[in-house]
């Protein structure tokens, strides 16, 4: 379904964020990607639908190598890759239905999109999915009046409207309270099973990764250093994934203290 080979990414002239990463996702099931901030989780996900341009390597989604695609062929490839975002990224000023139908933008013509005249099949599917996530009473509500959990459910429905072959979720619960976060994870898990859809989730919460994922991938400084079942993720593995990140924080703290001290000497005369 998804095969990533020797993927590297460098922003500008900086360090490599992804260092020759190779990963294969087979059929349905939820794969969690864990790792500290800056490990490259978001970059990895965004390379798959080319919101971020990979530096080298290949990414094959459903038999198509998406690296190097341009224009119409890139847009067609993106249709089969749904994405859920940390900040929901709904169009605040549009209604729930318009947000949901925007998942079909890769399929409809420009005039249809402009006038909101979507095919009946799309509208039927939108209603079915909205009912599935319990938002059937909010069809014409403006997206920015919903609660965080409701917004993310709209985000999930929008991604599923694309009829994706794979679903990417970039920290889908990081902006939610613990209870709602749990609900969104179970919903994602259920929908993944119902639609037999492979799901790739970036996640900060290790407990949720263990609870909901069939497979956990640990990323550290752009390299995969753990790949296995959630039950294999013991303290030793977690130490390796998150090791050193606390130390870096301490160094940063020392620098700040130093800067303060210098500031003091300048001000005193």
């Amino acid at each position: 379904m998804l095969r990533i080979t020797d993927l590297t990414k460098r922003y500008g002239t900086g360090e490599l964020v992804l260092k020759g990463l190779t990963l294969e996702i087979g059929g349905a099931g939820l794969t969690a990607i864990i790792g500290s901030s800056g490990a490259g989780k978001s970059t990895l996900l965004r390379c798959i639908n080319r919101l971020v341009e990979p530096t080298s390597g290949s990414i094959v989604v459903d038999g198509v190598d998406v690296t190097g695609l341009r224009g119409r062929r890139l847009r067609h490839a993106r249709r089969s890759i749904g994405m859920i975002f940390q900040g929901f990224n709904l169009i605040d000023r549009l209604s729930v239905m318009e947000n949901v139908l925007s998942g079909r933008l890769g399929y409809v013509g420009f005039a249809q999109a402009l006038t909101r005249r979507y095919p009946q099949a799309d509208i039927d599917r939108a209603f079915t999915l909205l009912e599935r996530v319990g938002l059937q009473d909010f069809v014409n509500t403006r997206a920015d009046t919903l609660s965080g959990g409701q917004r993310q459910r709209v985000g999930v429905v929008r991604a599923l409207m694309q009829d994706p072959k794979i679903l990417l979720a970039d920290e889908p619960t990081a902006s939610l309270d613990p209870k709602t976060s749990q609900q969104i994870m179970s919903l994602t898990r259920e929908l993944s099973e119902e639609l037999s859809l492979p799901v790739l989730v970036n996640i900060h919460n290790v407990h949720q990764a263990k609870e909901f994922a069939d497979r956990v991938v640990g990323l550290r400084y752009g390299t995969i250093i753990f790949d296995g079942a959630g039950s294999d993720l013991d303290d030793a593995a977690l130490d390796r994934i998150y090791e050193g990140t606390a130390g870096r924080g301490d160094e940063h703290g020392d620098e700040t203290v130093g800067a303060d001290a210098r500031g003091g000497t300048v001000a005193s005369p």
Partner: peptide, 30 residues
């Protein structure tokens, strides 16, 4: 404008003008 909304519409496979109509114009309408 909030770039996340542009990203989301782009991720659905929409082209330049659809991104304008769905992600940019609603944000600048007021």
């Amino acid at each position: 404008v909030d770039y996340g909304q542009i990203e989301a519409i782009r991720a659905s496979g929409a082209g330049y003008f659809k991104v304008l109509v769905y992600a940019v114009f609603p944000q600048i309408l007021p």
